[in-house]
């Protein structure tokens, strides 16, 4: 049984069809890239998967049960976590608290025991803190744990978002342009980190990325979206040679990459 199965998902905003008949099947442990020109509907697809929008039509099955139209927090509880294209941290909270907040899903004590502060509460709090600290160390953010999230540099904020997403202990991790705005060196480091994430945390990863080199480098399978429709899917090599993709996308990126 596939981990995630999306069938003919469509999302319309009034007259605009942002995602049209989107179909996707993810096996557990895969690393899949979702690419496409600006405005192709990639982020909308993510928003459908995470419950920000309910699909106009179509089905989304995760671990064998339907999640279409569920609330984002329910989908997070089911095991899908994400990062955002335009970073959405909790800016005034500390780096540690950002990650601790995301341990909420596995946090047992009730509100009353938080007020009573008994032994089980202290244990749960310490466990949450240790888990958050370990994730921060994993992403090289341990030394900033007491700083506010907004004081971090851009690349560090991106890494913190991934750490926070992992703190919900997801089965499926959706990364929305994790390398956006990074310099080539940072990009390479991040990609290396993402590559090892999968084995270390046992997550399946679906990522949106603009940088073709990055996507082709780490993904085993790539889907190409254009005007809300999947126009091609396959291995990086197949995608690179697909005439439809070259027409819709790669030409544009080639022009862009020659600039960079």
């Amino acid at each position: 049984m596939p981990l995630l199965e999306v069938k003919d998902c469509t999302k319309q905003f009034g007259g605009l069809t942002a995602v049209n008949q989107f179909t996707l099947s993810l096996e557990s442990g895969e690393m899949v890239g979702l690419i496409g020109p600006n405005g192709a509907g990639k982020t909308t697809a993510f928003n459908l998967l995470t419950g920000v929008y309910a699909p106009t039509s179509g089905t989304i099955q995760f671990c064998g049960s339907s999640i279409a139209g569920h609330k984002p927090y329910q989908i997070a509880a089911a095991g899908i976590s994400r990062t955002f294209q335009n970073i959405r941290l909790f800016p005034a909270l500390t780096v540690l608290d950002n990650v601790r907040t995301a341990t909420h899903l596995h946090y047992q004590p009730s509100l009353l025991s938080a007020i009573w502060r008994g032994k089980s509460f202290t244990l749960a709090e310490n466990a949450a803190r240790d888990e958050a600290m370990a994730l921060l160390e994993r992403f090289g953010l341990g030394k900033y744990y007491g700083d506010t999230a907004k004081s971090l540099a851009y690349g560090e904020q991106r890494r913190l978002e991934i750490a926070r997403a992992l703190a919900t202990r997801p089965k499926l991790l959706l990364l929305d342009e994790p390398a956006a705005g990074m310099n080539p060196q940072e990009k390479n480091d991040l990609m290396e980190q993402i590559r090892t994430l999968r084995d270390e945390f046992g997550v399946t990863i679906l990522l949106i990325e603009h940088d073709m080199k990055v996507v082709m480098g780490i993904c085993e399978r790539i889907l190409v979206l254009d005007y809300g429709q999947v126009i091609a899917q396959g291995t990086p090599r197949e995608i690179r040679e697909d005439p439809k993709v070259i027409e819709a996308y790669l030409g544009e990126v080639d022009a862009g990459s020659s600039v960079s």
Binding site: T50, G51, V52, K71, P72, Y73, A76, A77, S81, R82, F84, R88, L89, F90, P91, A92, L93, D97, T101, A102, H104, L105, R164, A165, A167, T168
Partner: peptide, 15 residues
């Protein structure tokens, strides 16, 4: 506090 900071992110983290 997460509700105060960013509601969309808070929901995505299971709150």
């Amino acid at each position: 506090l997460a509700v105060r900071e960013d509601e969309i992110a808070a929901e995505a983290m299971g709150i």
